[in-house]
Design a protein around this nucleic acid. Sequence first.
DNA 1: AATGAATGAGATTTCATTCAT
DNA 2: CATGAATGAAATCTCATTCAT
Lengths: 199, 199, 199, 199
Amino acid sequence: MKKQSPKKLQRKTEIVEAAVKVFAEKGFFKAKVSDVAKEAGIADGTVYLHFKNKDDLLIYLFENKMEHILMRFNSQLAESIDPIEKMKLFFQIYFKIIKEDKKLAEVFQVELRQSVKFLKDYHNQKFIDFLNIIGGIIKQGKQDGFFNPELNTNVTKILIFGALDETARQWILGTNSKYSLKEAVDHISSILITGLLIV
Amino acid sequence: MKKQSPKKLQRKTEIVEAAVKVFAEKGFFKAKVSDVAKEAGIADGTVYLHFKNKDDLLIYLFENKMEHILMRFNSQLAESIDPIEKMKLFFQIYFKIIKEDKKLAEVFQVELRQSVKFLKDYHNQKFIDFLNIIGGIIKQGKQDGFFNPELNTNVTKILIFGALDETARQWILGTNSKYSLKEAVDHISSILITGLLIV
Amino acid sequence: MKKQSPKKLQRKTEIVEAAVKVFAEKGFFKAKVSDVAKEAGIADGTVYLHFKNKDDLLIYLFENKMEHILMRFNSQLAESIDPIEKMKLFFQIYFKIIKEDKKLAEVFQVELRQSVKFLKDYHNQKFIDFLNIIGGIIKQGKQDGFFNPELNTNVTKILIFGALDETARQWILGTNSKYSLKEAVDHISSILITGLLIV
Amino acid sequence: MKKQSPKKLQRKTEIVEAAVKVFAEKGFFKAKVSDVAKEAGIADGTVYLHFKNKDDLLIYLFENKMEHILMRFNSQLAESIDPIEKMKLFFQIYFKIIKEDKKLAEVFQVELRQSVKFLKDYHNQKFIDFLNIIGGIIKQGKQDGFFNPELNTNVTKILIFGALDETARQWILGTNSKYSLKEAVDHISSILITGLLIV
DNA sequence: AATGAATGAGATTTCATTCAT
DNA sequence: CATGAATGAAATCTCATTCAT
């Protein structure tokens, strides 16, 4: 890791913010580097002083944003001990983050998925870490005798993430079916946690 | 709907099959029309005798495949009356389809998502129809006194779809966490249906 | 010259008529062979049973139509002896032809001009013949003591053709300035013939 | 009107000059954008930094060149008051311009004509302005009692333009009939002005 | 003779990336 | 550091022409 001067880092952050906006609106492929530059109020070439190329910008965006998100989850979840409460809290934080930054959510939900395909050698560790937060809660819940011990943590964490992610995505798109984020959290909590509990 | 000579329709179908393969492997944006043509064993220009452009090919692919899938769900689900059984059956059919045509599943799950963004004026009716199959089962289950009547059908159907979809995707990608499709169906059935039941 | 069966000739003529219409509307370059075929109510390939290629169709169209036009001028002008009357008659016939077949006129006026450029080795003999009809009248007029003998026949015939052609063209396009064909003939006759006369 | 940096404007002008040359030689349709780029000594893509597309380049070429030509006519014609002298001067300037820039003349005379057809919504105001310079002289001549007051200015201006234009074109093409530009001017002046005068 | 699906060369256009200023 | 004009590889799409039926 190279250290960056604070000034340079700030400029880099500005570009990332611009990229989030532009990628959310147009999608990564349709977005031009010049769109990002214009949004950031800089020249096209300047983007390349901070990022090797367009792919690099996307990866950095993921890594950087994910890092913040992971830190946020970890610090806030630390407050709670009860796995059931922890899971509910996870759901709340998730939707809170979505609500706070719709654009970022859009980029993550849409572009993240296909990034796997085209960024051949990009191993998305941060996403795995994220899933493992859910996995950790499940494990703890099983250990503590709340959750059904027969559940496969791997499948379950993905199942939960999918439910969260899709309800969030449809809420952002605002198409198909309208509902409030509160309704979403309540349903997720109610249905999924009930489903996890020991019969 | 224009009628097509059987010969023309067959060629069109061949192109769609090639497109599924190529889009699944490279992603829609990275895939070249010439890749699709080569895969179909035809000249580049021939693609344009059947589709207005690359976007049109993607849309037709969705519509066409979705139509078959919807028909399959509808006919097979008709056999069952009990909403709980119906929901389980839905899960089984879903994963069966995924298993049968991984490539198609990849295109749907990865490319479908971003298509919404760039195909500005494409109203994805077939996807809505698909979601409403789940919605229908939920409604019936609430009416018949099996499922919690306080559940919002809209949120719930999306939540269920998300759980299904994500477990399917991760299975296809084979990254992050490995599990069998059987495990996936069992977990989905167990967790979600339990979660839906009246307490 | 190959002889053609009457049936074949008729089909060829149909294609030429379709080509006149399509070339007039779209211009030679923008017109597709398939447009011509569709207009003629035949298959694309059939055009190539009668013409070597698209250029050949244009050239045949010119030659063929010009032949008729030249014959018409020659036969009708034979009735008159007086060069002044002959010139006036020429103007009348010219505008009559234009009026009768606007589409053909459009093709001639627009496409003929640029054909010179792209049909490298096409020597437009028929057009020269056409100009020489005017040239012949001028010469006769000079010999008979009506027209100024100092006029260069070559320049004059072109000058006259230009005046005719442009007034006809603007009338067809109907843009810029509106006037009747009668006005056009009268002005041409009045201005040009006065200008030609011996002072 | 957008302002352009002087550097950008210069490059744009270079492209236009190259386009004049290439369009004159090959014709607009046969000319490739890459031909223009090569002629200008730049990369293909650079053309698109200055013009939206090939059509746009043609239109700009017309507008830009016509503007200069119109200014030239207007400033030089201002020197003369007598409508007859003014008309003669118009002819002289016209042929002088043709002589100075044959290539441009070719583009105007050959390509301009068909452009009307394919540039559907291009209203050629500059050409109308040009015709109206002739129209103005005719009007003045009628008012001042030199020209036949019964002449329709609209028809007459077009007639004159046609005579000028065609003699110029045939001179440029150098086909059919050879003559000097001086002969052309003399004949035009003699024939047309005589024809316009009050009997 | 007629068809029209298929071809594939070739043109237009885009845009990530570079580099002289 | 920043700029933004220029590059040119590469992709999409068109359509005259062919040829098996």
